[in-house]
Design a protein around this nucleic acid. Structure first.
Length: 779
DNA sequence: GACCTGCTGCGGAATG
């Protein structure tokens, strides 16, 4: 670590500090910083060079923003001096024009723009560098001013940048003429998503408008896969990106995994009536609450009260449930309530109030939250993190952990994992204690510093439709060749061939019997918006690449049961759990968003079902298998977790799963693949295509009405046929409309998009080979 | 059977 001079004019300054502009040096000194942090020190050289892309990776609140902007502002100041002192009006060769936005900073959150505006504006005011905010809550008059007199640093969201390109298309090259840097904050939040593809495309379009490559600086949390982050920052050129990972903060981690088990609710003891801090009488009877939640709430109360903490629950419903249980405990103990909820359905006021209470360190407060508090909103660091229920991914567990541990203090993580009570009728996944074992597997992978790789290779056809229509609106019309070159020659849509692009154009123009009217072609060949296209682009909802959740209506025997969000394949014949009951899917109507169900017989439905939309990675399931096969017990388990792990391992042995992957259950067969959700989902589709009646619980597939020997034979036939064309296999999946503009795609394009996003045929066929090799047929 | 993110221009009313 290097020291800064104690005065503004002398001393053994660090090499990085020496290279900053004198006015920046003075600003640093005025902050009374005694030294530059490691990441700030190392970022100076590559950022000052101004000719390369850089990923700066460090923990939340480690000075990443300054690491980028100390150097960026130095360059802006030197630019200005070069223009003022060395150049007359007629001699500007080699220097960028004075006009225009010089730094484009893109953030995934409005709240983060507001935080960063406060910090940057304080620094830039002293330097006479203007800083502008541009997002949905900023007044239109301020945006007009940026368009009229663009300069300095512009803080913007991807959606607002989209709006800027569409609304001010003819001014884009002027607005960004002097662009020096693009900064992307929370880069990891864009990896593998529609929003990420949109941002990559927008930055392509900005570079095309100014006719040169602009250096990109990505700011990222310390997440495993830096090569993927670099490739996302500069698609096709990730290997040339400078990657800086902070070496600071190899912090002590204190870890505990606590096991819980549901018991008979009638045994629960009520807490009686209580009075809260305002003297109001509140109900304090937990009789309606599952017993494991009651015990977890008791423990959270005992462990967390009096300090600042974050409790991550896996759903909004659970956030509300635990906030309520904890508030009742505060009332019963006659102490002030210090537990507040935070999730996406709460009003902005309530969320900001919770954030303000977290920032205020004079009174302890614990927020019960969903992933809303995962990203870098400035709340400072908390004493400890609690995770209730199995984490969704290792990456998100790591990100959550990063919120704990003030400088020098240990980071504290406690996981609260509960399992069903087991009876002879219990479904195998519950008897295997799969929830607990998955949580241990994820903690083990966290300790190994492993992370899920972001999804890549998706075609993102929905986002390509958005970008195509946006490009036409920006320029008032483009030729098909220009459109293809601009959008698909490199960047997020480079996997789209000219043939596929042509098919997409035809689909948007409308084919006989399916008239979309999104675009049309003028007699000179120019692509123009059709009437439906004008309407779509003209509404503000067009600017976001992602859609608000698409829900299917569930109907059973003519009665509506509710709504189900679809982000995993629902196959006809599969079983789903809804409203505490087990149902069989008898029909799926993709266009009417309707799923028809009938009651299904069968045992108790398993509580563990693969955890929603997040894809459990192959490596996680492989680690689970390894945990079942080992004898060691991790030191961070409490006594109850040790007991549950022992039960899971005993049942694993009793099922014979060490040598078998097919397990007979009544007249059905369970197939344990020990691979991730993508491969298991692909295998489910393959078995369905071969005539099986398959449902996917994540951990295992259930093939209804077939004995293990018959399933073995089916697998053998699939292996003999060899891996099919993924696009052909996708054709049998009825629910493929997932992304925002997927409705506009023809069936072949939908199949191609689905196959690229959700199928891993080679992985599934390798699994089939492994299953056939491993299986010991016993009946 | 999860969570999260974002958004323009205009018209009219209220205020200075």
């Amino acid at each position: 670590m290097t020291s800064l001079p104690s005065g503004s004019d002398t001393g053994a300054a660090s090499a990085a500090f020496e290279r900053l502009h004198p006015r920046i040096q003075r600003w640093v000194w005025e902050q009374q910083w005694t030294e530059l942090r490691d990441i700030q020190e190392r970022a100076a050289e590559p950022v000052l060079a101004g000719d390369r892309d850089v990923v700066i990776s460090a923990a939340t609140a480690s000075g990443k923003t300054e690491a980028a902007f100390l150097s960026i502002c130095s360059v802006l100041l030197r630019d200005r001096e070069a223009r003022e002192h060395t150049l007359g009006p007629g001699d500007r060769t080699g220097v960028l024009p004075a006009g225009g936005v010089q730094v484009l900073y893109v953030s995934p959150l409005k709240a983060l723009i507001n935080d960063q505006f406060g910090r940057l504006d304080a620094m830039c005011e002293a330097l006479d560098i203007p800083v502008h905010r541009w997002h949905g809550d900023v007044a239109g008059s301020r945006k007009s001013k940026v368009v009229r007199e663009p300069d300095g640093i512009l803080l913007i969201t991807p959606e607002s940048l989209e709006a800027l390109l569409i609304t001010h298309g003819t001014h884009v090259s002027r607005i960004f003429a002097g662009l020096r840097y693009v900064v992307i904050d929370e880069l990891h939040a864009f990896l593998g998503s529609e929003r990420g593809a949109q941002l990559q495309s927008l930055l392509n379009r900005v570079e095309l408008a100014v006719r040169r490559r602009v250096p990109r600086i990505g700011l990222s949390a310390t997440l495993g896969d830096m090569a993927a982050a670099a490739e996302h920052l500069r698609p096709g050129g990730g290997h040339q990106v400078t990657i800086l990972v902070s070496t600071d903060g190899s912090q002590e981690l204190r870890l505990q995994l606590r096991g819980y088990e549901k018991t008979d609710p009638s045994l629960a003891k009520p807490h009686g009536e209580a009075t809260d801090a305002d003297g109001e009488t509140v109900p304090a009877d937990d009789a309606d609450t599952p017993t494991d939640a009651v015990t977890i709430a008791d423990d959270l109360f005992a462990l967390l009260r009096g300090t600042d903490n974050l409790v991550f629950a896996n759903s909004r419903r659970q956030v509300e449930e635990y906030t309520d249980l904890l508030a009742r405990r505060c009332a019963a103990a006659r102490v002030p309530n210090e537990f507040v909820p935070h999730h996406g359905s709460l009003s902005k006021d309530l969320r900001e109030d919770a954030e303000a209470r977290l920032k205020d360190r004079s009174v302890p407060v614990t927020a019960i939250c969903t992933s809303t508090l995962e990203l870098g909103i400035d709340i400072g660091s908390v004493t400890s993190i609690a995770q209730v229920g199995a984490p969704h991914t290792v990456a998100s567990l790591r990100q959550r952990l990063g919120r704990s541990g003030r400088r020098g203090d240990p980071a504290i993580l406690r996981l609260f994992i509960s399992e069903e009570s087991v009876s002879p009728q219990t479904a195998p996944p519950d008897a295997l204690r799969a929830q607990l074992v998955q949580s241990i597997a994820m903690v083990e992978l966290l300790l190994q510093r492993w992370n899920e790789a972001p999804d890549s290779g998706g075609l993102h056809l929905s986002t390509l439709i958005q970008q195509l229509l946006s490009l036409i609106a920006q320029h008032g019309g483009v030729t098909p060749r220009e459109a293809y070159t601009t959008l698909c020659s490199h960047g997020p849509f480079s996997g789209v061939s000219t043939d596929m692009f042509a098919a997409l154009l035809r689909a948007l123009a409308g084919e006989p019997g399916k008239y979309n009217d999104m675009l049309m072609q003028a007699s000179d060949g120019l692509l123009l918006l059709g009437t439906a296209g004008e309407r779509l682009v003209g509404h503000y909802s067009f600017y976001a690449a992602f859609r608000s959740p698409q829900e299917y209506r569930l109907v059973a025997h003519g009665r509506q049961l509710g709504m189900l969000p679809i982000d995993y394949p629902v196959l006809i014949g599969s079983l789903i759990i809804f409203g505490g009951r087990r149902w069989k899917v008898v029909d799926v109507d993709d266009r009417a968003k309707l799923i028809e169900l009938e009651r299904s017989s069968g045992g108790k439905p398993p509580a563990f079902t693969g955890d929603g939309g997040a894809q459990v990675a192959d490596r996680v399931r492989q680690e689970m298998l390894a945990l079942y096969c080992r004898d060691e017990v991790p030191a961070y388990l409490d006594a109850s977790a040790v007991r549950l792990l022992g039960q899971g391992r005993a049942n694993f042995t009793a099922y014979g799963l060490a040598d078998n992957r097919l397990l007979r259950l009544g007249s059905d067969t369970l197939l344990f693949g020990w691979m991730g959700d993508r491969i298991m989902g692909t295998l489910a589709v393959a078995l369905t295509s071969a005539g099986g009646d398959v449902s996917n619980d994540g951990l295992c597939l259930t093939v209804a009405g077939m004995a293990p020997a018959d399933v073995f034979e089916m697998l053998d036939e699939l292996a003999a046929q060899g891996p099919p064309d993924p696009v052909g296999l996708a054709a049998i999946v009825p629910t493929k409309v997932a992304e925002k503009h997927d409705e506009l795609l023809t069936e072949p394009l939908l199949n191609a998009g689905y196959a690229s996003r959700s199928l891993d045929v080679l992985g599934a066929w390798k699994l089939i080979d492994d299953l056939l090799a491993t299986q010991v047929l016993r009946d």
